[in-house]
Design a protein around this nucleic acid. Sequence first.
DNA 1: GGCGCCAATGCAATACTATAACATCTCAAA
DNA 2: TTTGAGATGTTATAGTATTGCATTGGCGCC
Lengths: 166, 166
Amino acid sequence: MDESIQGPFADPDHDHTHCVTGAIASAETICRMRGARLTGQRRRVLEIVWKSHVPVGAYEILAALSPDERPVAPPTVYRALEFLRAHGLVHKIESLKAYVGCRHPGRDHVGQFLICEECGDAAEIQDSSIERAIEDRAAAAGFRVSETTLEVRGLCPACLPDYAPQ
Amino acid sequence: MDESIQGPFADPDHDHTHCVTGAIASAETICRMRGARLTGQRRRVLEIVWKSHVPVGAYEILAALSPDERPVAPPTVYRALEFLRAHGLVHKIESLKAYVGCRHPGRDHVGQFLICEECGDAAEIQDSSIERAIEDRAAAAGFRVSETTLEVRGLCPACLPDYAPQ
DNA sequence: GGCGCCAATGCAATACTATAACATCTCAAA
DNA sequence: TTTGAGATGTTATAGTATTGCATTGGCGCC
């Protein structure tokens, strides 16, 4: 998770359990501090979203949630996602209609993503130059920003060689 | 349409017929140059999208397209939109699932929007500093950009006073 | 402990967005 | 005029998301 070393994209063979346990732990801390209830359902949804760095659709979550116990209905998933988003624990990637765990939970930030069209990985970045450029342009237009969505599609370092060897 | 004077947001009482006629004219020019056919359906869809600067949903277009003649089915609308997008004549605002006329048709550009949460207007901007900041960050991450979506929500100049008088 | 309250979940139905698959039409070039 | 490819029509269905109401379950208060 140390961006300064490995960049926004996780190494393909990183120990992903660290990502998951870390994410759950921060979620618990954040919810406790806020007096929000990270219930079983919500925690399970968070775990499913964190299964990988590839955004997952709501109905995939639904399917992953159901097999064990009795099947679950859409509102259950959407409500959990709404809660998690409200607390900055997951982001929605609009262009994919899919959800991904937030890499910087708790910190006040906007959602900026580099999304690989090959492997599907969505790397969250938090670039102040981009943010400032947006803020400047908005100010020049007399526009007051409340929320921004930046979704950059392309090819991640791990997938680039497949297209342009060397 | 002169951004240097009025900014990205159109003046609330601008003469919108200019926007429409201009957009249709450019569309015709562009299609002619490319040997693409701007058919009746496609032109009607483009006109509907340009009815205002507020993005419209596909099914709104469907409704607007139907009353006169026989009702039209979804694929008709989506195919027209696909054509118009392919030729850079309209953009899709992912976060709204809605479509809006492109303000800089023909020019190679990315889609950057300031979207007013009050009046719904979506102002297309084309800010090279933002673009460069994104490109730089992507390059630093070893990411090759193919397409970017920037959707900034907030309040436009015309609606701001309603919230913060003076 | 019992009570009352509110948040969370269950549940059924439905709205909204988008695409697949195949038939038919149209128009321009040969 | 033929013909062929692109455009449109048509039906059905897939995929995404929300509404409304009933029920449950935890938690503080008496």
